[in-house]
Amino acid sequence: MLRVENLVKDYATGFLKKKVRVLNGVNLTVNKGEIFGFVGPNGAGKTTTFKVILGFVSLTSGSIELMGEPLGDVEVKRNIGYLPENPFFYDYLTGEELLHYMGELHGLNGDSLSKRIDELLEKVNMTHAKKIQLRKYSKGMLQRVGIAQALINDPQFLILDEPMSGLDPIGQREIKELILEQKEKGKTVLLSSHILSDVEALCDRVAIIINGRVVKTGELGRLFEGIHTNYEMLLRGGDQEALNNLGDLNVEVAKRAGLTVLKFDENVKSRVLDVVSDSGGDIVSLHPLRKSLEGLFVEEAKKDSHIET
C-alpha cells in the first residue's frame, strides 16, 4: 500500500531560511489490509510525514511509493481518504454541504452522493448536525465530520492524523470501531497518535518515530521485548523493618491506603518474593506494569543522545 524509504525533509525557517531537519530517515511499509499505527511524541514528525506522502510539501530526499504509484500521481487520491490533524473546515458550510463539496471533488454527485452523505453522518453520529453551520461545531464534532469526509469516497487506504484527538471516551470508542470495520471490509488504515493506548487495541503493527526517525517497527507486543518489565505489589501487614531493607534491591517502597506498595524490576522478582514471605506480609496483588510508550520514548531518546555524543 505504502512504502516510504529513507525519507528526509528539511524545512527552511525564519528570516534567514535556516534549514531544520524535521524528518531524518523515515522508513515505513504499510501492507494491504492492516491497521498501522504511527506513534511518537508531539513534534516527532508524524504530520510532516503525512504531508510529504500526500504531496503537500516536497521531500528533500528519499523515496515514496503510494499504492504502487510514485509520488505526485493525482489519480491515486481517488482511493485515499485523509483526516488532517486538527481539522478545520469552511465555517460557513453546513456539515452536509461540506461533505457534498468533498464528494464532488471525488467526482461524486446526485442521489448516490446524497445517500452516501446520510449514511456517513449516521455512522459518525452527526445526523442531528447535518444542517448546522460548521462554525457552530465543537472540536469533537469537527473531528467526526472530518472522519466522515475522509470516508466519502469509500477509500481503499485511509490515512488518519490523530483521529482520537478532541473526542470524549465514547467518541474514541466509536472511532475505533469504525476503524476496525474498515479493516473488516479489507481496507488499509494508517493512523498516527501520540498516545500508546490509542493504538494498543487497534493496530496490527506500529512504527515508533522519535525526532524525525523511525526507531522501531513491528507488532506492538514485540516492541517491548528486551525491555525489562516492572512489577507492582500491594501488601498488607508484614515486618516493616524487613520491607524497608528492600531499598537495597532498588525496590521502591511506599504506603498507600494502609497498604505497602512495592515497585521493582523483574530481575529481582524472586528475591523480593522471598523477603516478603519472610516478613509475614499478605500479598494483596502483584501485577506487571506495562512499559509505557513514554518510557520507550525516554529510553530511545537516551540512545539517540548516546549516538550523537
Binding site: F56, I80, F88, M102, H106
Partner: peptide, 12 residues
C-alpha cells in the same frame, strides 16, 4: 486555515 489539506487530499 488548513482547508488545502482537505482539498488536495482529493483528486484535484
Amino acid at each position: 486555515k488548513n482547508t488545502v489539506y482537505n482539498i488536495f487530499s482529493k483528486p484535484i
